[in-house]
Structure formats: structure tokens, C-alpha cells
Simulated scan of single mutants.
Amino acid sequence: MSGAVKLIRNEELTSVVEYAYAASAQSPARVVWTAGACPLDEHGATVAVGDHAGQAHQVMRNLATALRGAGAELTDIVQMRMYVVSDRQEDLVEVWKVVRSHMGEHDAPGTLLGVSVLGYEDQLVEVEAVAVTP
């Protein structure tokens, strides 16, 4: 985790969740906003059609690459939003587990949403993030 990001846990809230409840950024810092990372390969094709977990892995690899291009890492994320095309909680949890596996110990706050459709053909998963670097 960069020195600019502090993850905040509150003992008054349940500890069973797998993420920090809030995050703060130390000033001066540089903020990086990402577009939604999509499950596209280097040719622009949607990978792992029909597979939430497979798409989530590609999304997180693409997110990490986008952040590196901006001089940041996954551990610099202060907040993220995950979109999953499904009305089944099991599918959302499956994506959450993949995202957590890529984030390691850095349990930045995030929001997990089930949605009806995303922008690319056969797309099931998208993740956007805000990162802060010193």
C-alpha cells in the first residue's frame, strides 16, 4: 500500500466484511480515476464468454495494467465499484472472490452491483477504481 492511502476500519461496525469501510488519502497526493476495466483481450475481444470468474480475472489484470500506466498499483486503490451482469447473488459473490484474490491484503472499500447489461458484447463484469499515489 502506498504511503498516501490509509484504509479505515471502524470497531462499531461488523468485522465480518472483507473490506475496509472507508479510505483516506494523504495530501499532497496524485489521484488516478480509471475507466471501467473490461474483460477484453489485446485484440478487443471479450474473453471467457459466459464465465463470471474468468471475466473477473481478465478485468483485474486489465485494471492493474491501466493503473501501472498511470504510475499506480492495485494497492493504491482507495475505492472501487464492481458491476456484474446478473440477478443472482452467487454470481456477484463469485466475482467478489476473484477481485479479492487480486487485491491481496489491500481490502479497499468497494461497491458490488448487479446490473442488467454492460457495454461490450457478452460482457459480464466491469470494475472501476480510484487510486492515490504520493
Rank of each mutant, 00 (worst) to 15 (best):
V31Y: 12
V84K: 06
V49M: 07
A25C: 02
I8R: 05
V93L: 15
G69I: 01
E128Y: 02
M103H: 13
G36R: 11
V17P: 00
V59L: 04
V16A: 04
L74W: 10
Q26M: 06
V5A: 09
A131G: 14
G3P: 11
T75V: 02
L67Y: 04
G50A: 14
E126V: 01
S27T: 07
E121K: 15
C38S: 15
A108V: 04
S15H: 07
V125Y: 04
L124A: 10
M82Y: 03
V115I: 15
H106T: 01
A53P: 02
C38G: 05
E12G: 12
P134H: 10
D41K: 12
L40H: 10
T111H: 04
A64K: 09
Q58L: 02
D122E: 14
L112Q: 05
V99G: 05
V127F: 01
T34A: 05
L113I: 13
L7S: 00
V32R: 02
V49A: 12
D107A: 14
Q123Y: 12
V99H: 06
E42Q: 08
L92W: 01
V117Y: 06
E105G: 05
A56N: 06
H52Y: 11
D51K: 10
A45G: 03
E18R: 13
V127P: 01
A129N: 02
D122G: 01
V95G: 10
A53Q: 15
M60F: 06
G50L: 14
V17W: 01
A4Y: 09
L40C: 07
A20G: 06
T14R: 07
H43W: 09
D91H: 13
A4C: 08
V127Q: 02
Y19D: 08
E42Y: 07
S116E: 14
G119P: 13
T133L: 00
G3N: 13
A56G: 08
Y120I: 03
G36H: 06
L74A: 08
E121P: 12
H57Y: 04
E42P: 01
S116W: 04
K97T: 08
M1Q: 08
V31W: 08
P134N: 12
G71I: 00
E126I: 00
A131S: 13
L118F: 09
A37H: 03
D91G: 05
G71E: 01
A48N: 12
A129L: 01
H43G: 11
T75H: 06
E11N: 10
G104V: 06
N10V: 12
R9K: 11
L74H: 11
V17K: 03
A129P: 00
M80C: 05
V85H: 15
T14W: 03
G114E: 11
Q79A: 15
Q79H: 15
